[in-house]
Design a binder for these strands. Structure first.
Length: 870
RNA sequence: GGGCGUAUAGCUCAGUUGGUUAGAGCGUUACGUUGACAUCGUAGAGGUCACAAGUUCGAAUCUUGUUACGCCCA
């Protein structure tokens, strides 16, 4: 046995074990282990250009607690880690740091700059994750900017393209005017704000009928109006449908249609249909075959040249229309709205203005109100596959289960195919060229899998020269890369495109996906879509959803509130084990406040654990070299008669039950429940009672006798098992203790976190061994403590006679030996009493107290106070 | 508007198929230190389990409704 260190210093332990684990590749997945023991985790790579926050600590630690348990329980865990450095946030960061515009240089040059800027940011994450003791397989660390990652993203593109699940289409697209790029529905956020619903009259051609009064919140789109929609049961529907209205300011004749999807309750019951205000406009456009009239450009500004006055876009007053166009040209949509309202007001064309709460879709990233514009984009087919996506979502086990509904409601509400092309400079290229060769102009050319990764703006397809093709400039949506992390880790996307399909087949689908709930509709959704399209499979069998980390008062952490906690400072102050303990007490899916109280509790636990093991160690230190054999298993040592004392068996029986309960909870991913079982045993059974009881037998000189030997083995097994049970939660302190206990033993395993080191209930003794008698012992002891506490004397205060009576099923023929077995010596030692008697009734006049379970009552006759000697 | 979650001691939370007297930590009160631990120990006080109705021999737990807070979607 190694000597026991004087004091536990978390910083030393953390530094030491981090280095050792890294050196030993301690958490490397083993390809030689049987495939059925594989347990693969799909870790979402964090965006390294963002700042570290406690949320990272929280959700990644939750995953690691499970990973460590799974590994210890015998699974061959593959826990990969990557860094996402491929998206718009990285582009922005690099532009800021290097004071450049990505668009002004070649893609290659920009990527080179990224590779220069990113490493320190990546290091921050690497450092945090390493300090947190995430048991990842560092030999598989990857960057999404790497060739390998880009290759898999492009392979994914090729596979879907070949299967016809991915195509380029010219159609209305969600557009972020601030970042000037197409975006997907998942990147849209709806914000509520106060808006104005304006009632504006449209004259009716011929002049015989009253004007049609429409209600709109987007008057700047009057120029884009292609039709008016009126509910068929509207009182004016009969006279208006089929007529033309004349748009104010522009003088454009606008046909009026009956449309039963118009909400007759809202506004005036007559609405403009424009190119394009929202998804409904697109549906109506398609249904009624309306002409495209685009008035807003890609920057979200009013266009300066509209073909008003042409054949397809006539006007009653072309000059007036052009004057308005000129007046509004170049204004952003919001400004144009104000300007056009001003003009309409001047002309008396605002009949009514209602203040309404409206829901405005904005781009999640830039916060800019969205536009819908028509440009060619690449789409992955999702709308036609809703049912299959839902089916896959149901094949996955969600923890907590109700989180699946988030995905389901999202899928059910999908209105757009997944647009994956982005008009950005930086990112993974869309691997296609468009032919300029006579006779095949516009033909789409894709590279061969061997050619990947390609940049079509600088590379060329086989057999074509630079003059023959135009390379696609757009890049892939960053989710298009993120969503193939399972394929990246398993090396390929599908059988016909894979070089290492055997590995893929072995590892896919993965066992578990840990992630936070705010990325269900994006990351989880996309990953499911990809796995479905590539191989008709789920990407993972389990998904566990973590909640948010909140400030100690339960509010969200935010910079504006100033309540953001720096995770590094948190780790410095408490140590990783304590912070991980806090995570371990949280429940999957639930938000958890960063409570100082829980952190303090963790700190207490680490200290207590340290001291409890120290006690066991001190006992063993007294054993002469070679006097006792190295402990084996509880079961074997019990069978060999080494563990002979009933209270030792009682404690080990409880421990056996704890192992079973903790294992069961972990198998259900209820790690907090597991922690509770372990902590409960450790604190209540082991420290509060067992250690007090066993102390009598831990002091000896020379070779221990039978009951001392029994104590030594019991203490060893308890210590070794308790450290293992706590190991997934507190890897550093448990590793330190494990090293001290086993460091030089024959049965030593290098790390407590090794595969298969989790205790097995079948290696213990039956939980009910001496259970009733031992529990009675503890009850009686509690009653005795209470008497002493009420007398306000120390536990060491000497007692002459301790009287015990059974309260329940009180039987005068019962005896002490029958309720608590042959343990009177132990009770005498803990209570400092000379004798114990079974008394019916208890002597009158003595101080007495009942046990907490009311099964026993104890009276104490204290020994006369000895005069204190000087 | 639709859906989901949460509501238990002063505070933070457990409570696994309904079952004795609802638990833990912090805080609080009293007491206790020469052999693991004062970053401690022992004992005590503290709860109409959000509210209302129902099912049941029995409800924190199941059903329905209400309220408050939070989240997701429209």
């Amino acid at each position: 046995m190694k000597p026991f260190p004087k004091k536990y210093k978390h910083t030393d332990a953390e530094t030491q074990w981090q280095a050792r684990w890294a050196e030993d590749d301690a958490f490397k997945w083993s390809p030689d282990a049987p495939a059925e023991t594989d347990y693969v985790i799909d870790t979402p790579p964090p965006t390294v250009s963002g700042t570290l926050h406690v949320g990272h600590v929280y959700s990644y630690t939750q995953a690691d607690i499970m990973a460590r348990y799974m590994r210890m329980s015998g699974r061959n865990v593959l826990y990969p880690i990557g860094w996402d450095d491929n998206g718009l946030p990285t582009e922005r960061l690099v532009e800021k740091v290097k004071k450049v515009r990505g668009g002004n240089m070649s893609r290659e040059e920009f990527v080179a700059l990224c590779k220069e800027v990113i490493p320190p940011y990546e290091d921050e994450f690497r450092n945090l994750f390493s300090r947190l003791a995430l048991s990842v397989d560092w030999s598989r660390e990857y960057q999404t900017i790497s060739d390998e990652s880009r290759k898999v993203s492009q392979l994914s593109f090729l596979d879907l393209y070949r299967k016809g699940l991915l195509e380029r289409r010219l159609e209305p697209t969600l557009w972020d005017p601030a970042d000037r790029t197409a975006i997907a529905q998942a990147e849209v956020e709806e914000i509520e704000r106060e808006g104005k619903l304006n009632q504006i009259p449209f004259e009716i051609e011929g002049g015989e009928l009253e004007p049609a009064i429409i209600a709109t919140s987007r008057p700047e789109l009057i120029g884009a109006c292609g039709g008016l929609m009126i509910h068929p049961e509207h009182p004016r529907a009969k006279e208006l449908v089929g007529k033309n209205a004349i748009s104010p300011l522009y003088g454009v004749p606008i046909p009026i249609y009956a449309e039963d999807t118009v909400d007759p309750e809202k506004g005036t019951g007559i609405v403009m249909c424009c190119t394009f205000g929202d998804v409904t406009d697109i549906q109506w456009y398609r249904k009624h075959k309306l002409p495209l009239r685009v008035v807003i450009d890609e920057a979200g500004k009013m266009k300066s040249d509209l073909a008003i006055g042409s054949e397809g876009w006539p006007s009653k007053d072309v000059e007036a229309a052009q004057a308005i166009i000129t007046q509004l040209a170049g204004l952003k949509a919001e400004k144009a709205k104000e300007a056009i309202l001003e003009i309409l007001k001047e002309r008396g064309l605002i009949l009514k203005q209602d203040v309404t709460h409206q829901v405005v879709p904005v781009a999640e990233r830039s916060g800019a109100p969205l536009e819908i514009i028509v440009t060619p984009q690449w789409f992955i087919k999702t709308l036609d596959y809703k049912d299959q996506i839902l089916e896959k979502a149901r094949e996955i086990t969600w923890r907590p289960e109700y989180m699946r509904q988030r995905l389901e409601s999202w899928v059910e509400g999908l209105k757009w195919d997944w647009g994956i092309s982005r008009q950005r400079h930086f990112g993974v290229s869309i691997p296609v060229w468009y032919s300029k060769r006579p006779g095949e102009e516009g033909k789409i050319i894709v590279p061969s899998p061997d050619q990947l990764p390609v940049d079509p703006t600088s590379d060329l397809p086989e057999g074509y020269s630079a003059d023959d093709v135009i390379g696609e400039k757009d890049v892939l949506d960053t989710w298009a890369t993120s969503s193939v992390s399972p394929q990246l880790v398993t090396r390929t996307v599908s059988e016909d495109l894979g070089k290492d399909y055997e590995t893929h087949k072995r590892l896919f689908p993965m066992a578990m996906r840990p992630q936070a709930h705010e990325i269900i509709r994006t990351w989880a959704f996309y990953t499911i879509v990809k796995a479905l399209h590539h191989g008709q499979s789920v990407p993972w069998n389990n998904i566990s959803i973590s909640g948010w980390c909140l400030a100690s008062d339960g509010s969200k952490m935010s910079k504006s509130k100033g309540n953001v906690i720096d995770p590094i400072k948190l780790l410095d102050e408490y140590g990783s084990d304590v912070v991980r303990y806090w995570t371990g007490t949280s429940r999957l899916g639930h938000d958890t406040a960063l409570s100082p109280n829980t952190l303090a509790q963790g700190k207490r636990l680490v200290t207590k654990l340290w001291n409890a093991i120290k006690l066991a160690h001190m006992a063993w230190e007294q054993v002469p070299e070679g006097a006792l054999a190295q402990p084996s298993t509880v079961k074997a040592d019990f069978a060999a008669g080494l563990i002979s004392h009933p209270m030792d068996q009682w404690m080990l029986g409880h421990l056996s039950e704890t192992v079973a309960k903790a294992t069961e909870a972990f198998e259900k991913y209820e790690y907090a429940q597991a922690l509770r079982h372990v902590e409960d045993f450790f604190w209540r059974i082991h420290c509060d009672n067992y250690l007090e009881i066993v102390k009598r037998r831990t002091r000896f000189e020379g070779v221990p006798d039978a009951e001392q030997t029994s104590a030594l083995y019991a203490l060893f097994h308890a210590s070794a098992t308790i450290t293992k049970l706590f190991a997934p939660f507190m890897p550093f302190v448990t590793e330190t203790l494990h090293d001290v206990l086993w460091g030089e033993g024959d049965n030593a395993i290098a790390t407590i976190h090794a595969r298969g080191s989790w205790p097995k209930a079948e290696d213990f003794i039956a939980p009910d061994t001496f259970r009733r008698e031992g529990d009675n012992f503890v009850s009686i002891l509690a009653a005795g403590r209470k008497v002493k506490s009420e007398l306000q004397v120390s536990m060491k205060a000497p007692v002459e006679v301790m009287e015990v009576a059974g309260l329940r099923d009180s039987d005068p023929n019962e005896s002490l030996a029958r309720v608590m077995g042959d343990t009177a010596l132990d009770m005498e030692a803990v209570m400092s009493t000379q004798t114990i008697v079974w008394a019916h009734p208890l002597s009158e006049g003595l101080p007495r107290a009942a046990s907490p379970d009311n099964d026993f009552e104890v009276a104490l006759k204290m020994a006369p106070q000895e005069p204190k000697s000087e």
